[in-house]
Design a protein around this nucleic acid. Structure first.
Lengths: 149, 149
DNA sequence: CGGATATCGTTAGCGAAAGTAATGAGTCAT
DNA sequence: ATGACTCATTACTTTCGCTAACGATATCCG
């Protein structure tokens, strides 16, 4: 198996898993290296994105959703709060918990992200065929589900 | 746009880019967190995987392929060499260059990876429909191409 | 030829980001 | 009401990427 064909590899679940893991890791590194706006990390903008989609969430929920440990999420939130992109409030029923919500500024930043931050990836996408983009659309949804499973 | 539909998001290239970026980042974190064998990082096993697919490569080629800078690849190779998974030899024609190749042990490790290290992801894949897996197969190839672009 | 320039890998040093362990505040059950 | 549990945070460590600078080799050109 010195130079196996990629399509051979992906015929088994294990082979597909191997290829997918490498591809996802490599693209993640590439995306990190590629971002033009160095002011925000991938994790930070992912949190803004999630908040825009789901509304108020507790730090713990965010940590679980983004697959990081709570201290990492604390750090991300602290940073975002320092920029005025999110705000925290006490949970009405349980005062141990906090609720994190986008500020108006944060919402603007998310929307600006939608237009600008994905520039590199969006450009690459533009070079794909409609069928390939359709594949990625479906794949994105499946990948979301995988990381939650 | 407080709780926008995912399918809405992905209708534009920018929206798809946003969703894809978040999904890829999250799955990468999940995969890192999930690895049962803590002895090797994602990057390290990706290099073994690449060497298994392509045979001998120079550090520079590996760095470019994995989308890291040469010094990072030097570190990965040094670590793998320390475990006896790869070996280096002088390039026959250009003595500035090195050639990195899997050892027999390294090949075994790659094959064990194929069977074991992807266990978590492979299990998740098993829960998908054949159509979904077909989508991921195609997507994996596209993602590979994206990270090379 | 022979010296300037370019290339390849490595070393050194730094910074970003994630993890673990320990702490403090708040809740809940007995 | 006290003891166990949960949530968030703080403190510390580890991992992993980068840039800059260096030594060895190769290539180009006068």
């Amino acid at each position: 198996m010195k130079h196996p064909d990629l399509s051979q590899q992906t015929r088994t679940d294990a082979g597909l898993a191997a290829v997918l893991r490498v591809a996802v890791g490599r693209l993640a590194r590439r995306l990190r290296a590629q971002r033009s706006d160095t002011s925000m990390s991938l994790g930070q903008s992912a949190v803004l994105f999630t908040l825009a989609r789901h509304g108020r969430m507790t730090p713990g929920e965010l940590a679980e959703h983004e697959k990081v440990q709570p201290p990492s999420m604390t750090r991300i939130i602290t940073n975002l709060e320092g920029r005025g992109l999110v705000c925290k409030m006490r949970h009405p029923d349980d005062r141990r918990q906090q609720l994190v919500e986008l500020t108006a500024t944060g919402l603007e930043v998310v929307q600006a992200d939608q237009r600008q931050r994905e520039a590199w990836l969006a450009q690459r996408l533009r070079e794909l065929t409609a069928a390939e983009k359709a594949t990625l659309r479906k794949a994105a949804e499946i990948l979301e589900r995988l990381s939650q499973a």
